[in-house]
């Protein structure tokens, strides 16, 4: 019973108090408010770090469960080996430059991760051929705008390198920027109202389930 009541009321109260405090301290230059602000910001980073650790533990737990069930066992074992190796290397040799930890990051993690991202270049090329079509006037405007940007940032010489970039920069700086600004303002107002709803307890989806 206590759990059921406190499970929602206490977190909502904590959310309300810290939301209000962090909002109000914005308007104060008093040393107490500044200290309180700094303290809460430090605590926030620490608690957030714990949430990362919890997430990492969940990855480990799920993998162990899946391995015991036999699903994708060899692949998951490789993944787990990679996962365990990083803290082990850091523990033994530290995290300075020229340590095995750094070596793993630079020769295993970074190359693979950037190559995964590089695959997108191929999918963009494929999508350009198969999906990027002037089916309507707005679609044609989108297409022309994209092609203009690509041409203006290519070094082909002549007008393409001299005059076109100026036209493209103007489009980027004015009509394109205006639409982006409208989106930004829309998101800003949306975030503002959502934040208010969270603090006063109307928006409660972050509480998760109903207990």
């Amino acid at each position: 019973m206590v759990g059921v009541l406190m499970g929602r009321r206490l977190p909502l109260a904590v959310c309300f108090v810290f939301g209000l405090v962090m909002f109000l301290q914005y308007f104060s230059e008093h040393p107490v408010a500044i200290n309180l602000n700094q303290t809460i910001l430090d605590y926030w980073q620490i608690v957030f770090a714990f949430t990362l650790i919890v997430g990492i533990f969940t990855y480990f737990k799920n993998n162990v469960t899946q391995i015991s069930r036999g699903s994708d066992r060899p692949f998951r074992l490789v993944g787990l080996a990679g996962f365990v190796s990083m803290p082990l290397l850091a523990l033994i040799w530290g995290i300075k430059a020229d340590t095995p930890f750094m070596w793993m990051f630079e020769n295993v993690q970074a190359p693979m991760q950037s190559t995964v991202f590089a695959l997108l270049a191929f999918f963009v090329a494929s999508a350009s051929f198969r999906g990027f079509r002037a089916r309507s006037l707005p679609a044609a405007v989108l297409l022309l705008s994209a092609l203009l940007m690509l041409l203006s940032r290519s070094n082909i010489g002549g007008f393409f390198s001299e005059g076109l970039p100026e036209i493209a920069n103007w489009i980027r700086d004015y009509p394109s920027m205006a639409a982006r600004r409208a989106i930004l303002i829309g998101i800003g107002l949306g975030s503002l109202t959502t934040s208010l709803r969270v603090i006063i307890g109307i928006e409660r989806t972050w509480l998760g389930g109903d207990k």
């Binding site: 090329a125 690509l150 290519s154 070094n155 082909i156």
Partner: peptide, 23 residues
């Protein structure tokens, strides 16, 4: 990387144009 970058842009432009011709 600039020559490769410019060429890749032109390749994408070519694909878009070809795709639209087919369409």
């Amino acid at each position: 990387g600039m020559l490769a970058q410019s060429s890749a842009h032109l390749y994408v432009i070519l694909l878009v144009v070809l795709g639209n011709i087919v369409y």
